[in-house]
Design a protein around this nucleic acid. Structure first.
Lengths: 88, 88, 88, 88
DNA sequence: TTAAGCGATAGTTTCC
DNA sequence: GGAAACTATCGCTTAA
C-alpha cells in the first residue's frame, strides 16, 4: 500500500500545484520585463526614469493610504451601528 | 516655445508612460495574488507550502543551470567552427 | 606574521562591531517592548488596538508620501537650475 | 452625555497613546538606522556583513538557550524545595 | 562592465 | 490560523 506521500493521486496534485505556480511566476516575470521596456522607451524619449519611479511610488503610497482610510471609515461606521457586522 | 517639461505633448507622453507602467504593475500584483491563492489552496489540501517553495526554488536554479550549460555548449560549438558567427 | 583574519587588531575590531550592533539591537528590543506596553495600556482603557494600529499605519504612510513629495520637488527644482548639484 | 468616542477626555487620551507610540517607533527607526550604519562601517573596513549577521544570530540563539536553561534550573531548584515560591 | 547602493520582494516570526 | 511587522535576500539601476 502506498503512503500518502507516494500516492499517485497526491503526487499528481502536488505536481499540478507546482506547475500552476511556476506558470504564474513566468507570467509575472514577463510583466516585469514589459515594465522594464516601458522605462527604457521613456528614457529613449528623454524622460528621467528616476523621477518617474519616484512619482509612481508616491502615487502608489497615496492610493494605499486612501484605501486604508476608506476601510477605517467602514470600521468606524460599523462601530457606530451604521452597518451590520460582516458587511462592507 | 514651451520647454519640454511644460509642453502639452510631452506631458501627455509622460502621463501615458506612467499609466502604462501602473497598469502593468497592477497586473503583476494580481498575479502575485493568484500565486498566494494557489499556495493557500495547496495548504488546504494538506501540503507544506514551505517545502513547496523550496522545491520551486530548486527547480528554478536547475533550469537556470541548464540554460547556462546549453549556452556554454553553443559557445564551444562556435569556437570549434561548428556554427557560423551570430547564430544560436 | 599574522594574517589579517587572525590578527589581534582585526579580531578586536570585529568584536567591537559585533558588540555595538548587539547593544543597539537590545535597545531596539526594549523600545519594542515599550510599544507593546503602551498598546496594552490603551487596551486596558477600552481602546481598540486594531483600529489604533490602522490609524498609525495611515499616518505613517501619509508622512512617507509627504517626504517623498518634498524630495521630488527638490529634484524638479534642481532640474530647473534652481539648486546647484549635490545640494539639498 | 457624550459617548466615549466623542468625549474630549477620551480623545485626548487616544491622541496621547498614538503620540507615545509614534515617538517610540521613531526612536526604534533611528536605532535601526544606527545598526545599518555600523554594518556599513564594518563593510568599509573589509568585513563580510553577511557573516557578521550570522554570527550575531547564532549568539542570540545561544543566549536564548542559556536563559532557557537557567530558567529550567530555577524550576528544578524550586521543585526540590531549594527556593521559596515566587523568588528567582 | 562591474561594484555598490537601493528598492522591491520573498520569507520568517510574532501577535492577535 | 491568519494577518502584520520585520528581516534578509535578490535584482535592478546607476555611477565610476
Amino acid at each position: 500500500m502506498a503512503t500518502p506521500v507516494t500516492s499517485g493521486v497526491t503526487a499528481d496534485q502536488l505536481r499540478s500545484f507546482i506547475e500552476r505556480i511556476e506558470n504564474l511566476e513566468e507570467s509575472k516575470q514577463e510583466i516585469a520585463g514589459d515594465i522594464k521596456e516601458v522605462y527604457a522607451e521613456a528614457k529613449g524619449e528623454g524622460f528621467c526614469t528616476k523621477t518617474m519611479r519616484q512619482v509612481i511610488r508616491i502615487r502608489r503610497m497615496d492610493e494605499a493610504a486612501r484605501r486604508e482610510q476608506e476601510e477605517l471609515i467602514t470600521v468606524y461606521e460599523r462601530a457606530l451601528g451604521m452597518l451590520p457586522d460582516g458587511e462592507g
